[in-house]
Simulated assay, not measured.
Amino acid sequence: MLRTTLSAGVQAAAEKAVQRYAESSVVALKPSTGEVLAVANHREDGFNAAFQGKAAPGSTMKIITAAMLIDNGVTSMNGPAPCPDTATWQSQTFKNLTGMEPNEKATLANSFLRSCNTAFIKLIDEKPLTDASLQQEAEQRFGLGRGDWKTGIASFDGSVPAVSGPDRAAGAIGQGQVQMNPLNMASVTATAITGAFRQPYLVSPDLDDRQRAKGLPAGTAAQLKQMMRLTATQGTAARAMSGLSGDIGAKTGSAEVAGNATSDSWFTGFRGDVAAAAMVQQGGHGGDAAGPIVAAVLRAGG
């Protein structure tokens, strides 16, 4: 018998939660260890999109982008991150979600909790950032895109390529060439709140010598965790996370996919020592479909 790290209670909650939405996937893990507590998919094709999917993660990516801005000294949680109506980067104009009020005096925490796209795009050309900065942050701090995860089953490690032109700006808000799955985003949350990258695993890993990502400076992790707390209590994730007790935090995302009228719904969050992420294809805003799935799993995990 092959022993896995799955938690019966969290797994049952995950399987029940994804049944509410077509084409949905969720992963939950334990930030303190990297153990995968639950993985569930509800898809016509039977594909394990939770572990092997490759899709734009939308604004859940702003966790990594915010870490990049903080680690490179561009701004900080309480530092400036103005949120104008539009932001133009190399001839491409980016907008915010319909109805978002601009705020030229916004801090990074405020632009993060409201999920202001333009604030992040306005900051990506600040020194010392380069075309490779987001890739370096993802690989070195969060262990993504290195092709070396050994989860115990087939999985995709995420991809954040170094790109120039409009795709550099798009990548900062989880569009363009960035590709993730719920496993990757649950791990991003785990790294963000603990400051350490612990490679997720479903089957106990044989120890090997490979270089592990070095994780985040304590100050960066503290700011990310607090910004996720604010997002869950007074930002875009508040409705989905309402009623959850304990130490909670989250980030929403909606990713536009060419040819689809409705965006993919993404959501990642934590409660205590459980992190989870979900994606619902064409589910709309992050809080609408993926959010309730994550909240249900976090409720079972605490």
Rank of each mutant, 00 (worst) to 15 (best):
M1Q: 09
M1T: 05
R3W: 07
R3D: 03
R3K: 08
V10D: 00
K16M: 05
V18R: 05
V18G: 01
Q19T: 13
V27P: 02
A28R: 00
L29Y: 05
T33Y: 02
G34W: 01
A38T: 02
A38S: 00
N41M: 07
D45Q: 00
A50N: 07
A50Q: 05
Q52G: 04
K54E: 14
A56F: 10
G58L: 07
A66H: 06
A66C: 07
I70H: 04
I70P: 01
N72T: 10
N72D: 14
G73E: 07
G73M: 04
V74C: 11
T86F: 06
A87D: 08
S91P: 15
Q92L: 04
T93S: 01
K95V: 08
N96S: 07
E101A: 11
N103K: 13
N103A: 10
A106Q: 14
L108W: 04
L108Q: 03
L108V: 09
N110V: 15
L113M: 13
R114H: 13
C116Y: 02
F120H: 07
L123D: 01
I124T: 08
K127V: 11
K127D: 07
P128S: 08
P128F: 08
P128M: 11
L129D: 02
S133R: 11
S133K: 06
Q135Y: 15
Q135A: 08
A138L: 14
A138D: 12
R141S: 00
R146G: 03
G147C: 04
D148M: 10
W149R: 04
A154G: 05
P161Y: 01
A162P: 15
A169G: 00
G174C: 03
M180E: 05
P182M: 06
L183E: 00
M185I: 06
S187K: 02
A190I: 12
A192L: 09
A196M: 08
F197H: 07
F197S: 02
L202H: 03
V203Y: 08
S204T: 14
P205R: 11
D206M: 13
D209H: 15
D209Q: 15
R210E: 12
R210V: 12
R210L: 14
R212P: 00
P217K: 01
A218Y: 05
Q223S: 03
K225G: 02
T233S: 11
G235R: 10
G235E: 13
T236A: 08
A238G: 06
R239T: 13
A240R: 04
S242E: 14
S245K: 10
G246D: 10
K251A: 04
E256S: 07
V257Q: 06
G259H: 06
N260I: 13
T262I: 14
S265D: 05
W266N: 00
G269D: 09
G269P: 11
R271Y: 13
R271K: 15
R271F: 14
A278W: 06
M279D: 05
Q282I: 13
G286A: 11
A289K: 12
A289W: 15
A290L: 11
G291W: 12
I293N: 04
A296N: 15
V297H: 02
V297Q: 03
L298N: 09
A300M: 13
